[in-house]
């Protein structure tokens, strides 16, 4: 495992290996998101309690899930960078924070838009909403650190430590709906239990979950490859590539 990571993380190897991934990743992401959203908007009957407003679930849940999954991935990258000194992980850290912040923002705002007609309020300081807001603020502080520290490699180490400290927020978000009384409904999908949603309503949600995940991977990979190019500008292969018109 360690050997595989080291090999893959060699910049040149990474750059050429992932070249062929970009197009299929982007295409699949677009297909899944379009299919999932259109199906969710037009191909599923309205909810018996929430009417058509429940259709917001098809963007809200994938974004909320990813905002947490991406942060967990950042925790993994932080360990790779700080313990194993894998430079590539450092490149990924701020990039993951960018897309993670986008996802947390989508989750909060779509949740707010959903909350207005269902709960009668845009916002309430309850456990789930507050802990998700803390996650967005963590992302923002990580991005601010990136801009504040001028040496990018130093910035990545600081971000790594910050990420590890912030990991404590993930279980709080996850269990907030069980630990405290909250307006927020419980989890719709859990790993081992039967989903609390009718199968016909579940399929578009799964499509969008996959689609959003692929989209995040696609965006991050795109950016990471370009940064690798700049970081390795002193290497022969980058010079050759650049001379050839990039």
């Amino acid at each position: 495992m360690q050997r595989f990571i080291y090999q893959f993380a060699a910049s040149r190897h990474f750059y050429y290996q992932t070249q062929s991934w970009l197009f299929p990743l982007g295409l699949l992401a677009a297909l899944f998101i379009m299919l999932g959203s259109l199906w969710g908007l037009f191909g599923v009957p309205p909810d018996y309690q929430q009417g058509d407003a429940f259709r917001i679930i098809y963007v809200h849940v994938p974004a909320a899930f990813l905002s947490m999954a991406i942060y967990a991935a950042m925790g993994f990258m932080a360990i790779l960078l700080l313990v194993w000194r894998i430079k590539l992980a450092g490149i990924f850290l701020p990039l993951l924070a960018q897309i993670g912040a986008s996802m947390a923002f989508i989750a909060l705002v779509t949740g707010s838009i959903w909350g207005k007609p269902m709960w009668g309020t845009w916002w309430i300081w309850d456990a789930r909403l507050t802990s998700e807001l803390v996650l967005l603020l963590l992302y923002v502080s990580i991005l601010a650190t990136q801009f504040a520290v001028s040496n990018p490699e130093k910035a990545e180490k600081v971000i790594g430590i910050l990420t590890l400290v912030g990991l404590i927020d993930l279980p709080i978000i996850h269990y907030s709906v069980y630990w405290w009384n909250t307006l927020h409904q419980g989890a719709t999908l859990t790993l081992f239990e039967k989903p609390k949603i009718a199968p016909i309503m579940l399929y578009p949600l799964l499509l969008n979950l996959i689609g959003f995940s692929l989209f995040c991977a696609w965006v991050t990979l795109h950016k990471a490859r370009d940064i690798v190019l700049f970081r390795e500008r002193r290497q022969r292969w980058v010079m050759d590539l650049f001379a050839g018109g990039m």
Binding site: L41, P46, G51, D52, A53, R55, I56, I113, K116, P117
Partner: peptide, 8 residues
Amino acid sequence: MGHYGAYV
């Protein structure tokens, strides 16, 4: 969207 159009 059954009067929820603006939200959805």
